[in-house]
Structure formats: C-alpha cells, structure tokens
Design a binder for these strands. Structure first.
Lengths: 345, 345
DNA sequence: TCTTGCTACTGTATCGATCAAGAACTTAAT
DNA sequence: ATTAAGTTCTTGATCGATACAGTAGCAAGA
C-alpha cells in the first residue's frame, strides 16, 4: 500500500499522488479530491515518513539531549521551563521534538541517541567530558549548546553571563555586610558525591557554569578586599531542595559562623532555607540566602527568595529558534541572555 | 559518504560494513576494527537513520500525543510525573521519545504529528472529539490511550477506575457529615470557559474522566440518600491552582452554604484551599476539600490535602511498556491501575 | 574421498518516497 | 496562424540502508 497503489487506482502517476498531499497547487482541485478520496477508500495511511526522509534528507524533528537524572528532569523547574520554551517554539514551527535522555551509567550506544533521525541537536547542559557529546558531534548536524559545554565557535551557543550573575549575587550579600559566606553548588561531575570542596576543585571542574560562577563570587570578594580562600564551598550532589537541605545542614554544623549563603540554584536555596530554619536560624536575619534562576517558587517562598533571574523559558525558545535557523541557513551564533538581580527577602 | 564509501575503502561489501555496526558477531574482530577505523578516517557519520528506517520498517521511537496547553504540560505535576515514567521506560529500552503537542487552535496538519516517524503512539488524555485522534488512527500503528478517550477494544488502554475513585472521595466527605457539597472540575471541552455547570452538562461531556467521576460522586450521594441535583458543579477552565482559586471564589460567593468541595485534581484543590482561606474560612473546620491524584505537593500543603492517590509515574511506565510490547508482539490490553484514599487534613 | 557443519563474507533486490526534467495540453497574445 | 507562456501530469533516477539467499573456505568426522 504505497503512493503507487493509490496512483494505479486513480489512473495517475506516483508523483501526482505525492503532489496531492504535499503540493496542492501542482494539480487540479477535482483530481486532488479524487486522489484523496481513493486514498481514503483504500485505507492508505498517507506518505511514509521513512521514504520521505530518505529522499528529502529532512527529518522534520530536532533532538533534545540531556544527561541529568530522569527523576529530576521532569520535576526540576529549571529544566521544565526550558523544555516548555523549546516545545512551544518547535510546535509553532511544526517541527517534532525528540527527547534524548542519556541516563547516568547507561552506555550511549544503548540509548536512542545514535539511531534517532533528527535534523539537529539541542545539547542541554551536558558536562564537557560526557561521551554523548562525541556521538552527537559525529553526526555532523547543526548543534546548539545550552549553557554547557562551551565548544567555541564551532557550534551555536545559548547561555548567560554566569560570572557576572554570580558576582551580582555575591555583591548583594557583601553589601548587606556579610563576611562569612558559604557557597552551595549542585554537582561538579556526573557522580553524586556530596561534601565540602575547595576552590581548586571548582576551578578545575568539567562544568563551565560552576567555574564561571565561582569566579564571579570571587570577583566580588576581591572587590571587597576579602580573601576568596575564606569561602566555604559545599557540593550538594544534586539539584533539588532535599540535596540542598542535607548539604546545608552539614555545612552549617561544621561552620556555624556562616551568615550568608550563595546558592547555585533556587532549588538548592530553598533546601538551604529549610535547613537554616531547622537549625533554628531566623531568616533572613541570622542567615541570608541568595539563589539563582528565579523559578516561580522563589517568589512565593517564605521568606521570598532573593535571586538572580535568568529567562528560562526564553532560553528554550531562543535555543530552538536558533537551531531551526541553523538547520535552514547554516552558520553559528552565540546568544547571551540578560540576567537580573531580583531583591526579595 | 555511505556504507559503500567505507566498503570500497576497506575492500569489502556494503553488507559487511553494515554488519560491523549492527551485528558484530557476523564478522571477524580484526576486520571489524579495520572497518570502524576506516569509517573514522573517512569521517563517516555512521549508518543513516532514514535509510535504515525505510529498509527495516522500524523507527526506533514512540510518539507522545497531547493536546493540553504547552504552558501547563511542563508545569503540571500530573503530566510531568507521567512523562517521567514514560521517559524512564523508553530510555531504558533504548527507544526514542518524540513529543507531539497539538496546541489548541493549531491545525493538526501544521504540527509534526502527521509527518513524524514513530512505531506507535501514546495518546495522553485527549478529548474524544479531538481531530488529532483521526490523524493518529489513520497511521494504523499501535496505540495506547491513557485515560482518554476510551476507544474500546481496538486500542490498548491504561487508566484507573475513575468512578470508584470519585466515589471514595465523596464517601469521605459525606462520612464527615458534609451535606452541602460542591464539585470543581478542570475542563469539559477544549475551550476555556469557566463557570457553573449542571449535572447534564457533565454527563454529556466529551471527556470520559469527567463523566465517570461525576457518576462516582453521585453514586456516593445516592448511597447516602441524597439528591445529586443538590450538588453545585463548577468548571475552572484549566487545571492549575489559579483557575481553581478563581472558580472557587465565585462558587463560594454564590453558594456560601457549601462546606465540602470535591476537586477533580489536587491542583484545583490547592487553588480551592487558597480561595477558602481568602474568604476567611478555616480549613478544614469550615471548609473540607478532597483532591485527586496525590501530587507531591498534596502532602506538604498546609493543611495536608486528603486525596485519591493514583500512581502517575507508574502510569507512564505501564503505558510505555505496554506500547513497546504491542509494537513487538501485537495485541491490545487494558490496564487499570490501583487507586487509594489518602486521608490527611 | 566425501559429507557435514560452521564461519565469514558477498550480491541482488527492495523498502517508499521526492526530485528534475520534460511532455502534453490549454490559453493568451500577437 | 503562430508563438509564447502557463498548467497539469509523467518518467526515470535516486536517496542509503538491510534482508535474504547464497558462496567460498576450512575443519572434523565417516
């Protein structure tokens, strides 16, 4: 049951039937109606996707690669907002969106990644040493990287100025008079390994965002003539409130002198706030916290969370638009989205 | 640059190169290494997805159709939990997952739905009169419907016993002594149109879940010798706390005698609780609310929300497993997942 | 010497569509 | 009547891979 079957039934050629579906202006209206009616009568499913793809070379879909834990991807507000932006833009363009998760510990060749038909890839916040990157790059299709990793001019990139954002966050705490400051970050590598870190660990991490933000925090401290070595750095092991809470609890127990916390994400900040409350700290009087991202919950949290806003939905929109434009016209671009300090409590 | 290019370079046949990638046991190890090395040297991207699909007839991906507003899909806890289950299962099986949103007001033919290469479809909670259904069914691929619509034995189905669940919820309120009861539902049709409804509207809705749950509520009332016509029914216009809050505010203003609310979802219930508090009601003393779903927030909400739990992540897992099994072995099945009354405050 | 069974590889046919070029026919302008 | 332009439809080639059937070579056993 192919185009030919329908063509034979109507007494026209394959191409004409194809045109009836894809280029209605190429044939008369009555013939087109007759063809579509015959197709319906025969139970023809419509032009086969694989055949079309092979011939046209266009797959009609983009792939979204991520390596985060699947349990978090769909619950994490950062990711879901980003995905919403991507989905909106691709849906509007009539392009499919294929999710390509590569869970931690799973061999890339056992995932759909190497076998899926897409016109290009969105690489969402993947550590620079992740094996999935090689698989994607080998396909030699357009790629837009979001946040991580920075592959230079060879691929398009959408991100923010993490260093400046972090600096703004730290400036805020320092401006409030805080001098004993802790930094809470999600993860430096793929394996979850919560605990204290020293500055060098962060500066040598494979995660650019972590390096840049750490640098930004230190920029602010140097501006205030403080020694960045004084800062306490803790890895939470995951980007969720629970991980943040556990890590902060330990951090504050070992370093009760801390009065200010710089958190890499709002999710961590919310966990940190919970930990502070459990340890009997008054917020924000006895413990000040600054987050990052400005997820919806940041505004409704009690006390409302001061944070660095980045436009997460727009990030998804821009990334998808950029990819689809690259697929059409080629060329690479780098886009830096605006960030903003949102001062709350 | 195809298999042939590599084959010529090494001096073997196309098929052998194909086997080097897909059936390593079909050729010697040293030859395989030589082939893969040559492929690397030539910059061969690996077997082309479209070519493989055309030949094998397998697409290596499943499609997830949904018609909800994209702004909600990725923020709605019900949907994201379901998607998490689907993503987990498909990732584990090495199958791709293609999102197929058909936003309200967009012509199905302008979406990726008719053009995407998938081996089967998950139809997630789509109203029975939605045009996308016809498009999916025409492809004559395996289909698993989740919740909605019930297409009978022709397709597989994953859902819960909505009628019993609703009855359990109503029994709970009635058992507490409530006699003036309101029902808050999300949406009866695709267009958002908040406001009061009468029973007949619900019983004739194109949304089976709404019909069944209404029936369940009424079952419980009849058991208690109450007239179901007394119940106040309100449509929120969307499944989010804000819609629930607005609707409940109006409902309680017009019907201040109501002391018990049966909500179709926890999202609505949370909004209803907010509305109750704003109107000065003490919860649960002056207003008792029962939700549906048991989303994570239900447990942490203040006061904790009594609700009917349905296993949303499992729903996704089961649906994906069922679909992949159907793709492999054919046949259709109906699965009903267990539900449970979670009594909180 | 012959058969059998195994491994390792090859050659041909085929999957279903679209593209490019062109043919047949109609209409309009000169 | 002739030419040009436009419309409508056809033909042949092609996209890149895998399935299937088959062959060559070799070792073991009768």
């Amino acid at each position: 049951m192919t185009l030919q079957t329908v063509a034979d039934r109507v007494g026209v050629s394959r191409t004409t039937v194809s045109n009836a579906y894809n280029r209605p202006d190429q044939l008369g209206d009555d013939l087109r109606d007759r063809i579509l009616q015959a197709a319906k009568d025969l139970g023809y499913r419509g032009p086969d996707a694989a055949g079309r793809m092979l011939r046209t070379g266009r797959m009609g879909a983009i792939g979204l690669l991520f390596t985060e834990d699947l349990r978090f991807v769909f619950t994490d507000p950062d990711t879901t907002q980003f995905m919403q932006g991507v989905a909106e833009t691709s849906a509007l363009a009539g392009t499919g969106l294929t999710l390509l998760p590569v869970p931690f510990g799973v061999d890339v060749n056992n995932t759909a990644l190497p076998y899926t038909a897409v016109d290009g890839y969105l690489v969402f916040s993947v550590p620079s040493d992740h094996p999935a990157l090689e698989t994607v790059l080998r396909r030699q299709k357009p790629v837009v990287v979001i946040d991580e990793p920075d592959l230079g001019r060879t691929t398009s990139f959408v991100g923010i100025d993490d260093r400046s954002g972090a600096k703004m966050a730290a400036e805020h705490l320092l401006g409030l008079g805080h001098r004993n400051i802790g930094v809470l970050l999600a993860r430096l590598s793929l394996d979850k390994n919560p605990g204290p870190r020293n500055r060098a660990d962060v500066h040598h991490a494979s995660v650019r965002v972590a390096r840049d933000r750490m640098q930004g925090y230190e920029d602010a401290m140097l501006d205030h003539h403080l020694n960045p070595d004084q800062v306490i750095v803790w890895e939470a092991g995951g980007n969720d409130p629970d991980s943040g809470r556990h890590a902060t609890q330990k951090m504050l127990q070992q370093h009760p002198e801390l009065t200010g916390l710089l958190c890499f994400t709002d999710q961590l900040a919310i966990g940190a706030a919970q930990a502070g409350l459990r340890l009997g700290r008054q917020l924000p009087d006895q413990l000040s916290i600054v987050g990052f991202d400005d997820i919806p919950r940041a505004a409704t949290w009690d006390p409302p969370l001061t944070t660095i806003r980045q436009p997460l939905v727009d990030k998804g929109r821009m990334a998808a638009e950029l990819l689809m434009q690259t697929i059409k016209d080629g060329g690479t671009r780098r886009i830096q989205l605006p960030i903003e300090l949102i001062t709350r409590a």
